[in-house]
């Protein structure tokens, strides 16, 4: 059983000179504190700097014996980080506002994953070509292909549903693909977007 030592205990050990205690504290709260800072500044390098400054302040305060918030270590560290973030924005005379001036463009951040009109048309064309060709396949191959590709069924499920063995279902899928390739070549269809 792993027993997790309380923050307050680690703080006490560190004040008494155990350097390993600060390492444990930093590692324990690394992710949470980094995430907290990053959510405010949105910049990886700056996050790293503020993280470092925060813990330098923590170390100095603890070594000086000026820490008196036993049991509330993380909120205290977060407050230091928060104040440092505010200091940073004050110093640089700006708040973390998103604007679309000069080099910074909000649309570089807010991506649109949808296809553009041209690509959408091409996709529709490919889909309809493909559907037309699938309909030319023998019925048993069509059935397996639709179940596998469009309904995302496993070969076991296909076998249960169609009443054929898994090997037969696999064979039908294989022939469906071979025949589709032949149809693509025969009809000189380009299936790329």
């Amino acid at each position: 059983m792993v027993v997790q030592v309380e923050d307050s205990q680690l703080v006490k050990q560190y004040i008494q000179g155990d350097e390993r205690a600060i390492e444990a504290l930093i590692n324990r709260h690394n992710s949470r504190l980094t995430g907290f800072i990053y959510s405010k500044v949105g910049d990886r390098e700056l996050t790293e700097d503020i993280f470092q400054d925060t813990f330098m302040k923590v170390i100095r305060t603890l070594k000086r014996g000026a820490y008196n918030e036993e049991g509330k270590f993380l909120p205290w560290v977060m407050r230091i980080a928060h104040n440092l973030v505010i200091d940073h924005f004050r110093k640089h005379n700006r708040m973390p506002m998103y604007n679309s001036k000069e080099s910074y463009n909000i649309f570089s951040l807010l991506g649109d994953d949808r296809l553009n009109a041209e690509k959408q048309l091409i996709k529709e064309q490919i889909d309809s070509d493909l559907l037309r060709m699938i309909k030319e396949l023998p019925e048993d191959q069509q059935e397996v292909l639709e179940m596998r590709i469009y309904k995302d069924m496993s070969f076991k499920e296909i076998s249960d549903n169609t009443g054929v063995s898994i090997n037969t279902a696999l064979g039908r899928m294989r022939y469906a693909l071979i025949n589709l390739r032949k149809l693509v070549e025969a009809n000189s269809i380009v299936l790329t977007n």
Binding site: N27, N30, T47, Q52
Partner: peptide, 10 residues
């Protein structure tokens, strides 16, 4: 935070 940062702090 990067391991270098942690190392620096230690």
């Amino acid at each position: 935070a990067k391991p270098e940062t942690i190392q620096f702090l230690l």
